[in-house]
Design a protein around this nucleic acid. Structure first.
Lengths: 215, 215
DNA sequence: CGTCATCTTGATTACGCTCAAGCTCCGTGG
DNA sequence: CCACGGAGCTTGAGCGTAATCAAGATGACG
């Protein structure tokens, strides 16, 4: 089985999942900051962003927060590991989400494809988490912020990249404080690696320097 | 579908995987430090530790290393995200590993169970990676080391817990230096939270303090 | 235009890193 | 069995990066 073939099949699964969700799922809207699902809740649903953005996070008993990831239109979430949510999900901005019961998905796709599709989605989540581990474990503050911007830019096709999350969200994703994130953004701009157009929009000026920092 | 029932099914899948591997897999031995699979290699096999221990890791171009995880007897590894290994795996000590081609596993279990079993394994990996993110992002050096010891203790059933990895391995897992790891171990011992019997064996003295530090 | 949340910048502190020395454990050979 | 040697570990001193504390600046929204 060639790599190309497998990738193709993988993409098909993702597409199938989106198709089913578009067809069968309930369309819900959430206001900025609203909870979509809670930590330790049963993971009975699958979610897909159609408009806006979502963050997943966990908090420790003393309030320290770790953001697990951000999700944008067309991305599937709610699969964090098994039958109980280990993170909670919140609307980053006002947003629209497709919500589908897992059992309904299974009924429509059949057991086999259901498992294949969710396995593929779980693998993407795992890849994401592993990249996150790399960023958190062995990178400097500047590299963390650069990696984050590079990832955002990678997901966007436009020249100008929109940043829907606050500095606090970025900090809690990168294991930093808002002050440090702010300083690093300023520094990256001063050294002409990126250029900001307002607080939440940027574009990469020096691709090489960016790639070097983000590894 | 109750949680209990689902957990049971999950455990069955894990057991089935071990059974098939014991029956069909090739038993290989690796000397301490030997590579089991490489980064960016195709992930055509599934692995199960039978003796010794394994670590997975990634290195950045300048040599910084991030350890992804440690695997002990009966644990399955080699599933890190998709069709290409994103980490490499090395023998932590001399060890014995069951190796089985994925295609052979699929042929034996059938497509459906193959996917269910590997999905379950991928979910465990994801849960592991998510816990790792929490440790790396928002914990102090002391809490990181305590969390690590607590996790090790949790996997072991004996009172005295064996630690097969070096301080360097621990440091690269926790995003610290060996000096800091060493200092924290000393500190935990001085404050009577744990007690060491030699460099690589310990037991937890103060369970409450340990739980508090490890959250 | 005023108010409040968010963000930036500055000054200071502290946690963990770096560099350096010494110690312990363990394998090896005399 | 002990002496030697080397890797791995611990400890100490000093430093640097990012956290904390504290003001301001900017932007969003009524």
């Amino acid at each position: 089985m060639s790599l190309a073939f497998r990738s193709r099949a993988h993409d098909d699964d993702v597409q199938d999942l989106r198709d089913v969700m578009t067809r069968m799922a309930v369309r819900m809207t959430f206001a900025k900051g609203e909870e979509i699902y809670g930590q330790d809740e049963d993971a009975d649903f699958v979610y897909c962003v159609t408009r806006g953005a979502v963050r997943t996070a966990r908090v420790m008993s003393d309030g320290r927060r770790q953001v697990g990831g951000f999700y944008y239109p067309y991305e599937v979430f709610g699969l964090d590991a098994g039958h109980v949510h280990r993170f909670f999900a919140e609307a980053l901005s006002d947003c629209e989400i497709l919500v589908l019961k897992r059992s309904a998905l299974r009924a429509d796709l059949g057991q086999a494809q259901f498992e294949r599709v969710l396995w593929a989605a779980t693998q993407r989540e795992l890849a994401r988490a592993q990249d996150h581990v790399m960023i958190l474990g062995r990178k400097s503050a500047c590299e963390k912020v650069a990696s984050f911007l590079a990832e955002l830019a990678g997901r966007s096709d436009a020249k100008s990249v929109e940043m829907p999350m606050s500095r606090q969200d970025m900090a809690d994703y990168l294991g930093l404080t808002i002050e440090t994130v702010s300083r690093m953004l300023t520094q990256l701009q001063k050294s002409a690696v990126v250029e900001f157009a307002g607080l939440r929009s940027f574009r990469i000026c020096n691709t090489d320097a960016m790639a070097r920092l983000a590894e």
